[in-house]
Design a protein around this nucleic acid. Sequence first.
DNA 1: CGGTTGTTTGAACTGATTCAATCTGTGTGG
DNA 2: CCACACAGATTGAATCAGTTCAAACAACCG
Lengths: 237, 237
Amino acid sequence: MSKRSRAAAGDRIGLRDALVRAGLEPHLATLLEEMPSKSVEVDPRRPFREAGVQRNEVFFVESGILAKYKGDGAGRRQIIALRFAGDGILPGDKVADYGIQAIVRSRVLVGQQRDFDPIVDAHPELARFFWKLTQRHADIGYEWLLNCGRRDSTARVVHLLCELAERSGLDPDNRRLINPFTQQQIADITGQTSVNVNRVFADLERQGLIRREGRDIMFEDWDELRRVAGFSAAYLG
Amino acid sequence: MSKRSRAAAGDRIGLRDALVRAGLEPHLATLLEEMPSKSVEVDPRRPFREAGVQRNEVFFVESGILAKYKGDGAGRRQIIALRFAGDGILPGDKVADYGIQAIVRSRVLVGQQRDFDPIVDAHPELARFFWKLTQRHADIGYEWLLNCGRRDSTARVVHLLCELAERSGLDPDNRRLINPFTQQQIADITGQTSVNVNRVFADLERQGLIRREGRDIMFEDWDELRRVAGFSAAYLG
DNA sequence: CGGTTGTTTGAACTGATTCAATCTGTGTGG
DNA sequence: CCACACAGATTGAATCAGTTCAAACAACCG
């Protein structure tokens, strides 16, 4: 997805535009938008789709942010991926082993796999487009894995903030990041506890690297933050 | 990829067969195998491809195991994905931010992107096949993320062993797992130190859950191991 | 045999968790 | 406007899982 010049996390753009920005040919984007589907408002932190059931659906995020998550079987929860406006959650060939929740109030286009598949079959470029999109999602997943596996808790949190700034299109001179996450959600993404996330934030603020206003975050020292996070935007493609 | 009835980690099967087993139409598999390419022996734990350079190559594993890895910029290393026989490492549109190494001595078919792309363009089913394959790889990556983020060190190690048993096709009544990994590599996959991996193994053996002969591992109590790992093979598709 | 690579063990340390309590902001109904 | 409930943020104290450092040991190979 190419970078957007100015678009906050909660922005509202049409699905077609979002797909075109993501690199899809306009006429194919139109096709997808016109696919039989319903557009749904999804409340944050409420059940939307549970894991473990057969789901024959396609989702496209029109606005807001969705999270895919998995449980470890003992109540611990890991958010494994985020989907921003224009991103999709595509059906696999098996029972979905992940649930879906919204991070912020989101508008989601829900289609049926039986309507989606024929369109893809009829337009080979779509398979290629979704292949590339899946590749991008996998690459982000790999960076998250590096994050959880090899970085300390401060770096993990800051890395997520840097990624969020990139993906939600913070402009470089505007230092305010509109942070849509609760500390618990940041914990679920970065593989730690909300208590520790809170301590990390307090530390960062004490060191003067960030300043906080409510949930939002001011990047006081962008370069130093990138450094402590070991952040390089390369993996975002 | 469908399960193989009997095939150890180091087995030697033709690429074509491996691709067909992975679900590809025979004539398409033939096309890929006949693509201009060279077949290379890759030594384990030696540099094969470094991160950060433009790579216009496609790789298909003919035999053995390849690992994709990333560094955190401070010398710490995370293995982010494994590729078994029949798996491919497909080119992205950007500079590869990961390196490649072999886990065991492997035979790898190396092709050029400029030869690969036209074949895919000419055969739409290939785009769909690789899309599905990428989706599978992403799903495995997500499970690894859950592993690193939410499970303790014992569960992480055992989970990897269970996955290895599934992916390399251990048969259910044969309890011996031919383990190709050094403890350092297991540490690099599960996000911990080799010292701790060693302690985990010693614990598991002390508890009678596994027995070790050299590097290989006997599953003494398959059910209990799956339980401590929270392992369910669903994500492997 | 010597060199190299991987495994094992101990002791000290520390980053992060756990548990529990308190505080803050926001929305709701009276 | 206030009282109340609720979700999320903050803090402290105790604990523990996993790291770090360092050294010894084992297996393999030319």
